[in-house]
Structure formats: C-alpha cells, structure tokens
Design a protein around this nucleic acid. Structure first.
Lengths: 346, 346
DNA sequence: TCTTAGCACTCTCCATAATGGAGTGCTAAG
DNA sequence: CTTAGCACTCCATTATGGAGAGTGCTAAGA
C-alpha cells in the first residue's frame, strides 16, 4: 500500500484526530488539536495536513465548516498502522479471571454466558460469543439411552469432550438390547467422522445398516438436525444491548432500529461471526467492511477461541467510534483465558 | 366500583376514543368522533362528555388545545368493562396451529421457541414465553448415567414428563454399580417431592444417606442449582423486539432505551411473568400497574399455560396503545393450543 | 333539561428569517 | 515551509408570525 503511505506528521494528526473523536464524538477542528495536544504546530498547518488526509479519503467533513471525522478507511489505517494496545487494568483482568476461571461452571453454556456478560460489562459495548462449532468436531461416539418408556436420550460426543444431548420420543417401546445393538452399529459406522459431514449425508450413510432397528434409525436421522445443526439461537449469545443504546451515533432512530433488527435476526450475525472466527488472532471489522447494511455504523473486534479441536468466536460490537486499543487487548485476553479454561475442562 | 360507574354515553365515547387512539396514535378530538362514527351527537355534546371523562381521570389532554388521550385508568376501564373480543382470523389460527401442533418438535424448548415467534409475528408486538416452572413439579425419578469416563449424565424427570438433563464431570472414575446404587437411594429418598422444596433443602435431605457414594452425592447437590433452578436466561424467550422499535410511543429515546434495558436484564421480567402466570385465564397489565418504571409506556397481555402439573406463562408486550380485543383472543388461543400440545407430548 | 351553534381563546406546529459561532480555505508575509 | 489574517460557508439556535386544531363557555333552540 505504498501509494498512500503517510508521512510522520500525517500519521500523528490522524492518530490524534481519531483519539479525540473517539473520546468526544464531535467533529474535531484544527484549533482543538493545536491547543489540546502540545504538537508544536499552528492550526493553519494542521489544516493543511487535514486537507491532505481528506484527499486520501481518511477523514471527511460532515459539512463545509465543521471539523473532520474519520472515515472507514481512516479507522482502517489507524488500526493497521497506528494502534497502540492499551492493556486492560488490573481490576478488569481480575474480573475476567474470576468469571472465566471459576471452578463452579461445569457446562460450556455457563462459561460462555459468563464470558459474554463480562465482555459486555468491561467493554461497555455489546458482548458476543458464538459457541464452539460443533460441526467441526470429530464424532467420538453416539449413545442411545432409555430414559422412560418411549423416551430415549441421544448423546453425541465429539473428540474434544464436547457433547450434545437430546431427549426424543418414539412411538413404540423398544427393548434395551435393540437400543444397544443399534447404538453399536451407529458407532461402528459413524465415529471418527466430522460432524459437519455427517450432518450433510447422514441418511445415505446409515440407510444400509442391517441389523439396526429401522424405526430407531429414522428417529436418529430426524433428530440429527437439532443435534448436529449449530442451533443458531443457542449458539449465539449477546449481552449489553443497552450499552449501544446510549451512544450518540444511535440517536438517529433508523440506525438504532437497524442494529436491533440485526441482533434479533441472529442468523446473519452467526454467519458473520463464524467467518471471522476462522483464522487466528484478533480481527477488526469496520463499518461497510461488515457486509450488512444495518451494521454500517458499527465495528467489531473478534477473535477465535478453541475447545480442543473445535473453535468458536467471541468479540464485541460497538460504534466505529470505539476505543480499539483497549478493546483489542480485552478481546485478546478473554479469548486466551477462555481457551485455557476449556482445555482444562476437557 | 359503583362510584365511578359510567353512563351509556360515557361508555360509548370512551370506547370509541380508545379505539380511535389505538388506531391512529393521535390525540382524538370531539369532531373526529362526531364525524367518523355515526354517533348522533354533535361535537359540543361530545366535548361535554369528554370533560366528564377527564374529571373521572379516564382521559387527559397532552396540552390545552389537543384532543384527548386515554390514561392508564381509562385503559383499565376499557378492558374491564368495554372490551369486545375480536377472534383472530382464520389464517392466523392456521399459522398458530401449524407452529404449535407440528409433529416434528420433540423438545419443549423447540415448541416454546416456535410459540414465541408466532406470537410475535401475529401480534406485531413483543412475544414472550416463560418455560414451565419446573420447580412446581413433583420429582418422578433421578437417573445417573455413565457417559464416558468421569462424565455422568444427570436426568431429573417430573411427573408430567418434563425432564432436565445435565452433563457433569467427576474427579474419579466410578463404577456403574456405585452409580446405580446411589441413584436408587436418591430415588427412594427424593421422588414424590416438589422440585422447588428439594431445591431449598436438598443438602439436608441427603446428608445422612448411608450407602451412597459421598463424592457423587456432593456432585449431585452442587449440580442441583442448575438442574432445579429455573435458569432465568433459559426460561425466558423474547421475540419481536423490532416490532416495538417502530411504535410512535418509542420515538422518545429515553423510553425505548428503558424498555430495552428491561428486556435485557431479564430477571425482573421473569419474576413479573411468573407472578402473572399464577392464576387462570388472561391477565392484562397496563402501564404503572406493571411495577417497573421502565415499563410505564407498556402493557402486557399474559396467560398461564400448563404442562401436566406445572405451568408457565406466555404473553405479548407492547405499548399501552394496543389492540386489546385482538391480542386477548390471540394469547388465549395460543395458551390453549400450547397446553393441549404439551398434554399430547407427555 | 338537554343539546347544539357560535365564538373567543389557547396551544402546537411549521416555515421563515436573523444572529452568532465554529471552522475552513486561501493568500500573503515571515 | 509555516503561520497570521481574513473572507466565506454552513450549522445551530432563537425569535417571529401565521395556520390549524381543539377546547371551554355562553346563549339560543328543542
């Protein structure tokens, strides 16, 4: 990207401008920068630099005689080239550890719930987590357990130790031996496969299983959708919607409404987060880079976390005008703690 | 309440006024009522009646020369004395049945999810459901099922057929015989009791169980919180937040923010709904009657539903200015369908 | 006695200035 | 290359003046 490389002064001005705008939400003018920060330049000089930045598409004016405001591209340059990580405070780190390393939580669900909450409360933004992608996992074993007459508990366990259960009802009472036999056959046929693949073609893969109870097989295939599907609703957790509402960027009703709609609809958000959680490390996505029109005024800081072989995504969502330095540190630390805790649990 | 009994004309005017206000969200003046509805009275006469209604505290003027708007007390009188039920349309009834009576859903969770969604979509308001109050149920039996080494599945089943499961980890590997023995002892000691009572004093009730594995007992007691507690987050479902956002009463940012905060916080909403779901039949709660300041601009139409011996709550939440006649029918029908389906399932 | 036409009154809403202020771009001097 | 100075632009705020809606009250009519 050499063609839009910034000289030192341009970098300094852009950095100060964004930092000031993040703090105040007001367009920032040349005088403010000259006064507030001992930068050794007059407003006029700063104005010249600002014009350069505007020509590069990094800042813009809401109207002719207002100060400048960063554009998406400006934020992008800022986070790519100028970002200073600001480690979270001792207290905050403490709070994180208390929630995530707590001994009490036996279930992944609890842990994610707590994580989402603490993310929201420390960031003062919207905290999000996406449960581990079950469909990435390798099936370890299937169990069919008689619970009551006509009720069977299905358990799917993956290699890392994650499991999902589903209580289903069958039409007729089945003898334990039949259950055991079918479970055994299913295990022989299926274990070692990736859940995602199984989800695609389960019907094909079990249709020629002789010796298994046909009714039971059918039930298993039917149930597989809820067992192997990611279960959009359950997988996504959101906390801190309130934190968004206060932001000046959402005083426009349209915008707020759009974002709330997005959060409610969930599926597109789930897809988005899945995609952001593929790689390693922190991913920052700003404004239009999120390919959803309703999310235009927002930015996300996300990171993958790991539970054995499978991974999920955590992150925070807020207005573009967010404290990237702080939030990147927060999400990074949280993802690490979460992965560590999950490793300990399995 | 004889002292504020309304004469026929006052009733008619109040009814028309509220109906018109519900439709338009604009203060309604005397001329409109005289013109729009063939009421056989001149605006002046209507004005006189309106003054009476105002003295009774049933309507009020936003400002001196505006039309009238119903007060909470006005709505209350309307729903208590003047409400005409408007049966939902055939299409809507069809949609309800399709979602609720669907054969596919094996799990109560799915069913509630669908119910919440369809409530929201038909009402064009916020749909809410609260899962059956597990703690009202009578414990039928406990099961401890070895799933993998060091992993045990706990199942709590109540008389009606509802069950909850939890996968827990134990420090040491336990032999099946030990599990069976402990489960048997737990059943002898606990089954037949109300879950809510057990939740209170489980530790006391099992501490002298000789012959049971101590470690297993401790694990069971620890797990009881998540098994027997109502699990606020999981019990409450909300759909249709977007439907609220569009309403003119929420164009004031403060109000919208308050309601969103309320929805997010969940615990007070759960308590509220539990309380409304105690009796039988439809409960309408209007404005300040909901004892939560953030919910002041809202009204709720709720009803209990039943799953065997235990009950839950469903309902819709919207602005006070809602179509009570239609929504009462909707919630009533939905609660009946839901109870019927649950009965069928167990 | 109840109803209604008429009228003065009040208040909101909207559009139209008028003013002050913030911030810019440009020019010319240092 | 930097900066002081200045004209200029645009927004935000406030004031002003109808137009419109709806009321309360009074007095006349049924």
């Amino acid at each position: 990207m050499g063609f839009d490389a910034l000289n030192e002064r341009e970098q300094a001005i852009l950095k100060l401008l964004i930092e000031h705008y993040v703090a105040t939400a007001e367009p920032v003018g040349s005088r403010i920068l000259a006064q507030k920060y001992t930068i050794g330049l007059s407003p006029a000089t700063i104005r010249n630099t600002m014009q350069d930045l505007e020509e590069l598409g990094l800042v813009e004016q809401p109207h002719t005689s207002a100060g400048r405001v960063p554009t998406d591209k400006g934020y992008r340059t800022f986070v790519d080239q100028l970002l200073e990580l600001k480690p979270i405070s001792g207290q905050e780190a403490q709070a994180l550890r208390e929630q995530i390393n707590a001994e009490g939580s036996t279930a992944v669900e609890d842990l994610l719930e707590k994580t989402t909450r603490v993310l929201a409360s420390i960031s003062q933004q919207l905290g999000v987590t996406l449960a581990p992608r079950f469909d990435q996992g390798i099936l370890s074993h299937v169990e069919l357990i008689p619970v009551a007459q006509k009720k069977i508990l299905l358990i799917l366990t993956v290699k890392s130790g994650l499991a999902r259960t589903l209580l289903v009802e069958v039409d007729v009472e089945l003898r334990d031996a039949v259950l055991e036999r079918t479970a055994q056959l299913l295990n022989e046929r299926l274990s070692g496969s990736k859940i995602g693949d199984l989800h695609q073609n389960l019907k094909e893969r079990v249709k020629d299983l002789t010796g298994a109870d046909a009714r039971l097989l059918k039930m298993f295939v039917n149930a597989s959708d809820s067992l192997m599907g990611m279960g959009g609703a359950g997988a996504l957790r959101l906390e801190g919607t309130t934190n968004l509402v206060g932001n000046p960027e959402f005083k426009d009703h349209e915008k707020l409404s759009g974002v709330i709609q997005l959060l409610e609809e969930r599926t597109s958000l789930v897809e988005l987060l899945q995609q952001k959680g593929i790689g390693e490390g922190i991913v920052i996505t700003i404004g239009k880079e999120i390919n959803l029109s309703e999310a235009e005024p927002c930015a996300m800081v996300t990171s993958a976390y790991h539970a054995g072989r499978v991974s999920g995504t955590i992150g925070i969502i807020g207005p573009k005008r967010m404290n990237y330095g702080r939030l990147v540190s927060l999400v990074e630390t949280t993802a690490k703690l979460l992965s560590k805790q999950l490793k300990k649990m399995f």
